[in-house]
Design a binder for these strands. Sequence first.
DNA 1: TCGAGCTGGTTACCAATATAGACCAGGTCT
DNA 2: AGACCTGGTCTATATTGGTAACCAGCTCGA
Lengths: 149, 149
Amino acid sequence: MVTKVSLETGPVYPGAMSAQQQDMAFDVFAAFCPSREVFAELADKWSLLILASLYRVGEQRFSELQRSVSGVSRKMLTQSVRTLERDGLVRRTVHPEVPPRVVYDLLPLGRGLAERVATIGDWVEQNGHAVIAARCGFDEARSGGETGS
Amino acid sequence: MVTKVSLETGPVYPGAMSAQQQDMAFDVFAAFCPSREVFAELADKWSLLILASLYRVGEQRFSELQRSVSGVSRKMLTQSVRTLERDGLVRRTVHPEVPPRVVYDLLPLGRGLAERVATIGDWVEQNGHAVIAARCGFDEARSGGETGS
DNA sequence: TCGAGCTGGTTACCAATATAGACCAGGTCT
DNA sequence: AGACCTGGTCTATATTGGTAACCAGCTCGA
């Protein structure tokens, strides 16, 4: 009865079971669950920002994306969008013009995720000040509290 | 005064605005916006998993957390919870017993974020199979497509 | 005709970061 | 006494990220 997701690490993931029933068996908290791997792959700032940007702005070409996700290097941008493309979240369209034009946009699958990611971006923009305040408090308490001793 | 968050991070920040209205001024997409820093700090797999775990399971002690977020090293766990604590998202309570017992739980601020993060975890668990399928397709197309030369 | 430049992307290299795993304190149990 | 529990830190090594030069293919300027 190995009906559930096998937690057998990496090597194989035999598409052994029908995709429908394993939905619930995925567990991001399990180190060797494939969903963890997916999660880990997405959980970096560039991937998340790219998704959020594509969600907010819509399709963008490589250089636009690099501008809108400011601070990302070409290398990381390439790498991240490639991963997102591979994961079926983003579509990469090459227009064989000169100079070349490559456009990225969200696939339906990716939009569902991007939507959620965007809410995190929103949260940070709305609560960033609170976080920063907490941070100051923490740092103060730390350095300030060490007076005695 | 200078009640506002110091935006003086990098190159200019358009705004000398009061803290209230600048809520909206935070922009995670801007490389030097403080909110970007906050975002970047949170956008790693361990922090997100910890938040999600605390949200789903509730308060947990160090070792429980390490077990529930399986795969995390003690060092990364320590470091991540410390950051979350500093950011005012998580509370760390030390019970000076023997052996020591340290409990972590979400503060209200953190709960708001954790909630959103958890939805991403859910998404991954629900759509992981689609991602994995896409991935296989992509890899196949790639290696398979390179038959001729 | 030759060379510079645009776009998207890759590669090599180096510094920073993550990770595993040993180790520590300080108490309890046997 | 010695092994063991806990939360946590330190260290050595692997992995990652950024920098920046380079590539391809074409256009434009001189």
